[in-house]
Design a protein around this nucleic acid. Sequence first.
DNA 1: ATGTCTTTGTGAACGCGTGCACAAAGATGG
DNA 2: CCATCTTTGTGCACGCGTTCACAAAGACAT
Lengths: 241, 241
Amino acid sequence: MATGRQHRPATRSRGIPEATVARLPLYLRALTALSERSVPTVSSEELASAAGVNSAKLRKDFSYLGSYGTRGVGYDVEYLVYQISRELGLTQDWPVVIVGIGNLGAALANYGGFASRGFRVAALIDADPAMTGKQVAGIAVQHVDDLETIIHTGGVSIGVITTPGGAAQQVCERLVAAGVTSILNFAPTVLTVPEGVDVRKVDLSIELQILAFHEQRKAAEEMGGQVGREPGDGEQAVMPA
Amino acid sequence: MATGRQHRPATRSRGIPEATVARLPLYLRALTALSERSVPTVSSEELASAAGVNSAKLRKDFSYLGSYGTRGVGYDVEYLVYQISRELGLTQDWPVVIVGIGNLGAALANYGGFASRGFRVAALIDADPAMTGKQVAGIAVQHVDDLETIIHTGGVSIGVITTPGGAAQQVCERLVAAGVTSILNFAPTVLTVPEGVDVRKVDLSIELQILAFHEQRKAAEEMGGQVGREPGDGEQAVMPA
DNA sequence: ATGTCTTTGTGAACGCGTGCACAAAGATGG
DNA sequence: CCATCTTTGTGCACGCGTTCACAAAGACAT
């Protein structure tokens, strides 16, 4: 996923495998729900089911954090919420800037899931002068000329890019130069970043294309496994249109 | 990522590994850009660099599709665009419904990346009667009561869920019952689906939390590896910049 | 035709992630 | 205090994905 920094020891983050890190937010969400229902403890089986994973995997994941469970009983919900939050760094406040206030940028600015987990929209930035000063989600949009100042004064280290593809790399470079070291990229572009900068990519078009691939296969299987096989392989892909 | 169907043979899709499928859209995008610049052929090295991957990986990926390259020369851009498009099922038209027309749903409806790759927004659906009839991205929003009819008459097999978390599972079940077999879920919920249905999940909050984790580690390393144990563990990753 | 040079296609080794299966740990009841 | 029962924590094996490194294939010049 990430473009920068993916070729590093990877799993060396204090020994916590990347795959485990990616699941921690999932567990945290399930645990938060339990906490709101005042459930005191939960077994690996129950929690795994709520998070949509296998219980052995969950136990192994937690084992990387330490031994927080009690055999014969399960895990203390509140304690685990705290431990995972701490591990993920959610006990502190993360100011975030969103660059590119189009439909998607506005949607993100309005997204409630941010504030609830230690993230705070510190600024909205757009290149269009007509947008400057407009209120989006209760925050005034600022012009991209002020990007560096905004990053510095706000102590921002996480940036979200929701610009068109063409502008993404340039925006990325300015963000990085100003001190941002983590980027969430929604633009359909491969970002090139220096060592030490993390990039995660979310690409709607790619997700749909992957679904289409499987959808096509299912449709083909349905009508007798027509797509793939080797009746000599190659020409079978009928493709009427 | 996907919740349903992840425990199947996985790589059995006519022999194409899942990891490769996930990269094909990336290659396709890079190739399309080359095609627009009328570049006739491209080497694995160049294309890999444009797609942000390793050239050996790219060659192995393509080898699953067949031998479409010419040794000493490289790959024919147009031909490869066609082959990958066909493999991904993008030579046909995929009608898609979006359920939940809030900020995010509207943003997706307006997203240009859909139409360009064989996807067509067939309908926008929302549970709020006040939304019914409103035009979003030039399409009239329909009420969720008509969901089944819309799916059937439109021959829709791909659904995008952008509802609040609480409504997602129910919407999902209705979509599946109506015949949808691929779902792209933006709601912060683990969807449970029957065998044969593919679910892919996009979760903004999770992506940010993963970034926060790495950000915290970088900050800790900077000030002398204060966060995580073991003064004898991994101090070597100095990472000066 | 032959040799050289470029680039593909792939066999093989390695490493990460997953899941099984069980021993260790603790709770609980008599 | 002991037996039993539940549930965690983990050693181990297996499989997928990545990467290396090189032989085979073709282009191109002479």
